[in-house]
Design a protein around this nucleic acid. Sequence first.
DNA 1: CTTATTGCAAAACATTTGCAGTAAG
DNA 2: CTTACTGCAAATGTTTTGCAATAAG
Lengths: 137, 137
Amino acid sequence: MAIQRNTIQRTLVLDAVKTLKNHPTPDMVSEYVRGRNPAVSRSTIYRNLNLLCEEGRLQRVHVPNSADHIDHNCEPHYHAVCNKCGSVFDVEINLDSELSDDSSDLCSYVSCKGLKIKGCVVLFTGICDNCSEESKI
Amino acid sequence: MAIQRNTIQRTLVLDAVKTLKNHPTPDMVSEYVRGRNPAVSRSTIYRNLNLLCEEGRLQRVHVPNSADHIDHNCEPHYHAVCNKCGSVFDVEINLDSELSDDSSDLCSYVSCKGLKIKGCVVLFTGICDNCSEESKI
DNA sequence: CTTATTGCAAAACATTTGCAGTAAG
DNA sequence: CTTACTGCAAATGTTTTGCAATAAG
């Protein structure tokens, strides 16, 4: 079912992701939304994030061993996750590389017996500045 | 804690993954193991898969919206998942491409503000032959 | 003997769902 | 009015954990 009505809950959810800008998890969205309207339920957060992602107004970032993260930027681009704190960052492509923003380009480099490859998910990993600072102390 | 004892349960778990060869989920491992020894508990399956992966004797393949899959082949290589049935396949690199088996090579193509990139996870997606046959019928 | 390992049941975690009530159009 | 949407509570799927009992070395 597509989006047909503009509820205050829906607006709050979309605004939260756009305001936070930090690839929040549904939980972080929930916390932010509840700060402005404590009555909004967790199910509504999840349902609206799902609908907004399906409509292409938000983008989902799957992170292993963690909740999903939500990106307000729907243009194709890569992400990186901190192995310590789980924060998600946007990644920049080096100008002189063969890699493009569109990860499905990688598909032309590979083949697979028994499966027709259509797309590709890439997630970079590392340690964020915050966490590497902490470990120095 | 590292592996120190060779229990029959541990042997059954390792044998299951090596025999099945199809990147089974813990559930599929459990079913196979229980076919040979119904007393083995699910916790033991999980605990042994975790230990064997930590030791580098098995490899874990994270699949979004699905249980993990376990690979008996620990050499670095890429995987693809069927969007319909969730089966996991090994991917072959085209000989004349810049892509190598080691996904961390991709890291040299990108940079990230606020995070030091160390590695990279790649998962190809598509439709397997079985599922595309089914949809033709 | 010692303690790593097991089985069980319960908990944890992220997310979805059934249903009756509410509100957007 | 109609029915998309919400809130709640309960269920789902996957994995982990506390604890007493077992067994590997």
